[in-house]
Design a protein around this nucleic acid. Structure first.
Lengths: 116, 116
DNA sequence: TCAATATATGAATAAGTATTCATATGATAA
DNA sequence: TTATCATATGAATACTTATTCATATATTGA
């Protein structure tokens, strides 16, 4: 298929690449996680929640935008297992489901030389 | 704005969240990185390149799809600084620009319990 | 029970993104 | 220089995703 001149050197890598390619299902899971945290509006919510549990009103204050948009984003983050919700009277308090995603976020920021 | 009952406990977090919110520019940079690696087709290319440098033909073999689609994805990855290209005769060999993104990828996979 | 507040949600639209097709570019070999 | 091969690219289309608006639900206090 590819008459690439580096048969010797590249052929092994190509073979390994085919053999070690994760399944569609795994690639999909990884992609879905990154997609969930790729939208600036959602990233801001995660940055906000690093400070601790916040109810929706406070999240809206912290990240800007309107209530409905924030609520939709929260639903997506919750569906992705990134945040969890807890009812507290009239309010619903959101918090990070665990430290995993923040660890990924902070590693990415370090590499991008972001001071967060 | 929010008559959240946890004034005492949440107000501090809300204040910190506003104060420590990264700039639009930083949030945008982080989001762009995650967006680049959120598409399954591009993720597969990165998984393939973990094995070493590959020319386009071999990448097409490894990830499937047609030549044009792969080329467009490579352009996006290159624009994001994730892969680099080197002409080698008729071929163009692609490789990972550095270990940063793969580190992020592997951390995410670990947390998702993917065996890659 | 009624009014007020916080949050969620469905539907419509707008915006963004990927994929495909046809074709262009650039390198090599004849 | 012409034919061929590998790769890139522009434009069109198809798809996905976000945002907005209006309204629904759930909780609390009067």
């Amino acid at each position: 298929m590819s008459g690439c001149g580096h048969e010797a050197e590249h052929e092994l890598a190509a073979k390994l690449a085919r053999e070690n390619m994760p399944s569609e299902e795994e690639v999909g899971r990884v992609g879905a996680l990154f997609k969930a945290i790729s939208e600036p509006a959602r990233l801001k919510i995660l940055f906000a929640l690093r400070q601790g549990e916040l109810c929706v009103g406070h999240i809206v204050e912290a990240v800007g935008g309107n209530q409905s948009a924030v609520s939709h984003q929260l639903r997506i983050l919750k569906a992705a297992g990134i945040v969890k919700a807890r009812r507290d009277g009239q309010n619903i308090a959101y918090s990070l489901a665990d430290g995993h995603v923040v660890a990924v976020l902070e590693l990415a920021c370090t590499h991008l030389h972001c001071k967060i």
